[in-house]
Every structure is written in C-alpha cells, then in structure tokens.
C-alpha cells in the first residue's frame, strides 16, 4: 500500500512545528530532501523530538533503534515507515 500525500503533508507540518523551524513553510520541504546532517541539517536531539511529536500525531510507537536510521532519512522515508506502522494489524499504540 503506498502512502498518501496527506501523510507526507502532515509529517512536514509536524517537522516545522515540533522543531520550531520558524519561517519555513512545510511545503518547502522536499519529499526526498535529506533531513539530517545536510539538507535541513537536523541533529540527534531533533530526531528524538521528532519521534515524540510523530508518536503523538500518528499514535504509533517508534523504537530507539529505529530512530535516525533509514526510516528518518527523508519525509518520504518517514511516510513509508509510518504508513507501514499504521497498516500493521494490531500495532497501533502498542505498549513498549
């Protein structure tokens, strides 16, 4: 199942809001632009902050070892990751 543009759009809004990226319009974030290191230049603390915000926004749980890896490389990668979580049977809001 391919993820909807709506998820990507929500992710971009979360990025801008949660990370206080004032002056950045969510739509300006390229779907495939690198989020960490180069591109938006976010760092490890941004990654963790983003996790908390994404967990809240989508009701999913993200494990420590998943943070900052391929799933977080770009908005598209995040969208695919979250979409996969939401689709998995019985996964939503699973405890730690």
């Amino acid at each position: 199942m391919s993820e909807s543009p709506a998820i990507r759009s929500r992710i971009k809004q979360v990025i801008v809001d949660a990370l206080h990226l004032e002056g950045l319009v969510p739509q300006e974030i390229g779907d495939d632009a690198p989020l960490f290191g180069e591109g938006l230049g976010l760092d490890s603390v941004d990654a963790l902050e983003l996790v908390v915000a994404l967990e809240k926004e989508f009701g999913v749980r993200i494990q420590s070892h998943e943070v900052g890896k391929e799933a977080f490389a770009s908005v598209s990668a995040l969208a695919a990751f979250i979409d996969g979580r939401l689709a998995a049977p019985g996964y939503r809001n699973a405890g730690s």
Binding site: H20, L48, E49, R61
Partner: peptide, 9 residues
C-alpha cells in the same frame, strides 16, 4: 513517553 527532549536539554 510524551516528555520532550527539547525541554529537558
């Protein structure tokens, strides 16, 4: 789980 890293640092 809602504790924000931004706040703590």
């Amino acid at each position: 789980e809602t504790a924000q890293p931004f706040y703590f640092s």
